[in-house]
Amino acid sequence: AEKTGIVNVSSSLNAREGASTSSKVIGSLSGNTKVTIVGEEGAFYKIEYKGSHGYVAKEYIKDIKDE
C-alpha cells in the first residue's frame, strides 16, 4: 500500500534521480511537503510528488498514517 510521508526538514530536501547521494539532484522539496512513498531502496524512499518520481533520504521523511 502507498504511504504518505512528510518532508521533515527546516529548509529543503533534495530529491534525486537514484537511491544514492551521488545521484543527480532533480528537485527540492520544502519542509512539511506531503509526498507519496511508493517504494524503498536502502536508505532511500522512492517518492511521487506532483506526478514525478524521485529518491529522498529516509531519515528526512516522517511517515504519517493514511487518513
Results as ranks from 00 to 15, higher is better:
E17F: 07
L29P: 01
S10N: 09
E2G: 14
S22E: 12
K34I: 13
Y49M: 06
G27D: 02
V56M: 01
E40Q: 08
L13F: 04
G51T: 05
L29R: 01
T21N: 14
G27P: 02
E17M: 08
S11I: 11
E59V: 11
V25E: 04
G31R: 14
N14C: 15
K65S: 13
V7H: 02
G54P: 01
V56Q: 01
G54T: 04
L29K: 02
A1V: 13
A43E: 14
G39L: 02
T33Y: 06
S20L: 06
S10I: 11
N8W: 11
T33H: 05
K50G: 11
L13A: 11
Y60G: 08
I37N: 00
G54H: 05
N32S: 08
T21P: 12
G31Y: 13
N14S: 12
K62E: 07
A57F: 11
A15E: 01
V38S: 02
V56G: 00
V25R: 05
D66Y: 14
S20H: 08
T33P: 02
E2S: 15
V35L: 04
K34Y: 09
K65E: 10
G5K: 04
I37Q: 00
F44T: 01
D66E: 12
K34H: 08
G39S: 06
G27T: 07
A19D: 02
V25C: 08
T4N: 06
T4Q: 09
L13K: 02
Y60W: 08
D66N: 11
V7W: 04
I6C: 13
K62D: 09
S23H: 07
S30L: 14
Y45Q: 01
I37A: 01
S11A: 09
Y45E: 01
T21Y: 14
D66G: 09
L29V: 08
V35C: 05
Y60P: 01
E48L: 15
I6Q: 05
I64M: 07
K50R: 09
I6M: 07
E2Y: 15
I37T: 00
E67Y: 12
S22I: 08
S12P: 08
A57T: 04
E2N: 15
G31M: 11
S30A: 14
G39V: 02
S20P: 03
E17D: 09
G51P: 00
G18S: 14
S12F: 14
F44G: 00
I26W: 03
S11Q: 10
A1C: 15
A57H: 08
A43G: 11
V25Y: 05
G42K: 04
D66L: 13
T33I: 06
A19Y: 04
G42M: 03
L29D: 01
V56F: 01
G31T: 11
S28F: 12
V9Y: 07
Y60L: 06
H53R: 05
S28L: 12
G18H: 14
H53C: 10
K3R: 14
I47F: 03
S12E: 09
T36Q: 08
S22L: 11
K58C: 03
Y49V: 04
A1E: 09
D63M: 15
S20D: 11
K50L: 11
G42P: 00
I47V: 05
G5P: 02
I61P: 00
Y60Q: 05
E59S: 08
L29F: 05
N14T: 12
R16E: 02
S12Y: 14
G5L: 04
S10G: 10
Y49F: 13
K24N: 07
L13V: 15
L13R: 02
G54S: 06
D63Y: 12
K46Y: 08
E17S: 09
L13C: 15
L29T: 02
A15P: 04
I26C: 09
S12H: 12
A57Y: 11
R16C: 08
G27L: 12
G51H: 05
G39C: 07
K46Q: 06
E40A: 05
N14I: 15
T4I: 11
A43P: 10
G42L: 03
I6A: 03
K65W: 10
I61G: 01
S23R: 04
S23P: 02
R16H: 15
S12C: 15
I61S: 01
V9P: 07
Y60I: 02
G51F: 05
V35A: 01
T21C: 15
V35H: 00
E2P: 15
T36I: 13
S30W: 11
G18K: 13
G54M: 14
G31A: 14
A57M: 13
A1H: 13
N32R: 08
E2H: 15
I26R: 02
I64E: 06
S22F: 09
E40G: 02
K46V: 10
N32K: 08
A19N: 04
E17G: 06
S11H: 13
V9A: 09
G42W: 02
K65F: 12
E59F: 08
G42Q: 03
E67M: 13
T33A: 08
A1Q: 12
D63E: 13
T21K: 11
N14D: 14
E67I: 14
I61R: 03
G54R: 04
S30D: 11
G5A: 04
S30Q: 14
K50V: 05
A15N: 02
R16Y: 15
H53V: 13
A43N: 12
A1S: 13
G5I: 06
D66R: 09
I47T: 03
N14Y: 14
A15Q: 03
L13E: 02
V56P: 00
A15W: 15
S12N: 09
A15S: 04
E67Q: 11
E41Y: 09
V7I: 10
G54F: 12
K24P: 11
G5Q: 02
H53T: 10
E67L: 14
G39H: 02
E40H: 05
S52I: 14
G31V: 10
S22D: 14
Y45K: 02
F44C: 06
S20F: 08
A15K: 02
G54W: 13
S11N: 11
S23Q: 03
E41N: 06
T4R: 09
S28N: 08
N32P: 04
I61C: 04
L13N: 01
D66I: 14
G27V: 08
L13Q: 02
Y55E: 00
S22Q: 11
K50N: 13
I26E: 03
G27N: 03
E40F: 05
E40L: 05
E41L: 07
E17I: 08
H53F: 15
G5Y: 06
V25S: 06
G18V: 06
G39Y: 04
S20V: 04
I47G: 01
N8R: 12
N14L: 15
A57I: 10
Y55T: 00
D63P: 10
I47Q: 01
G42A: 04
I64T: 07
K50M: 13
D63R: 11
E17W: 08
K65V: 12
E48N: 10
Y49W: 10
S10F: 10
V9S: 12
E48Y: 13
N14W: 13
R16A: 02
S10V: 13
S12W: 13
I6W: 12
N32G: 15
G5D: 02
I47D: 00
Y49A: 00
N32A: 08
G39W: 03
A43L: 11
T33W: 08
E40T: 06
Y55C: 03
